[in-house]
Amino acid sequence: MNERTTLEIIAPTVEEALAQGLADLGLPREAVDVEVLDEGSRGLFGLGGRQVRVRLTIKGAETSEPAAGQPTPAPAAGQPAPAPEPIPTASAGTDELLSISEKTVGELLEKMKIEAQLTTRYGEPDEEGQRPVYVNIHGDDLSILIGRRAEILNALQYIVNLIVSKQLAHWVQIVVDVEGYRTRREVQLRKMARQMADQAVKTGRRQVLEPMSAGDRRILHLELRDHPEVTTRSIGEDPLRKVTILPKE
């Protein structure tokens, strides 16, 4: 279980990095510990300066698993200094994948006539060591971008993955989020998974959850994968496929 309890942000200033990180996580300032990994440098005449790198750690996150407490590998270690941009963007866009991902989401939103700011970063590496790209969309009144059961957000994410993968000629994983919606949803789902598992154990009966997307179901299965007293299974067909939690014999 790799609960995401730390987040690294690259931004022009510590304040901006912190603000972005909190927006991504959807948490207040008090909920995180802040560690400045790289204070950056101003560069000559404000050019060629290095951006700051900040690590946020969620306080009191349920990090009973030792794995979650391990420090995350610093992804930006050997990164070249970002090129100075004419318009200050909040993006960490220093490498090709991040900038193409950001550009693609930006183009789509512009053509949908939606005004928003974007931040991009790499996530924690998955089982195969691939780091997903996170593109977070910030702005006012963006609930129209989420939709029922995140239908719109998922459509946007799917199209972005197709376009960027096609452009780079290899498959990449890009997570598109709005104001940290997915992060908050994941926290909720994990909590719900544990509550329903308790219920299954207490009553000895199978618990059936509401229909969910593949991504949401995956979070539930992973959360309960190592649970000693229950197993999980998905039943039904999309879009009505749902997770069931069964007490072990």
Binding site: K111, M112, K113, I114, I144, E151, A155, L156, Y158, I159
Partner: peptide, 15 residues
């Protein structure tokens, strides 16, 4: 793919 395009078009249209 076409359905994802329709979903995004719907957002633009509704506006």
């Amino acid at each position: 793919v076409a359905n994802a395009m329709r979903t995004l078009l719907r957002v633009a249209a509704e506006r």
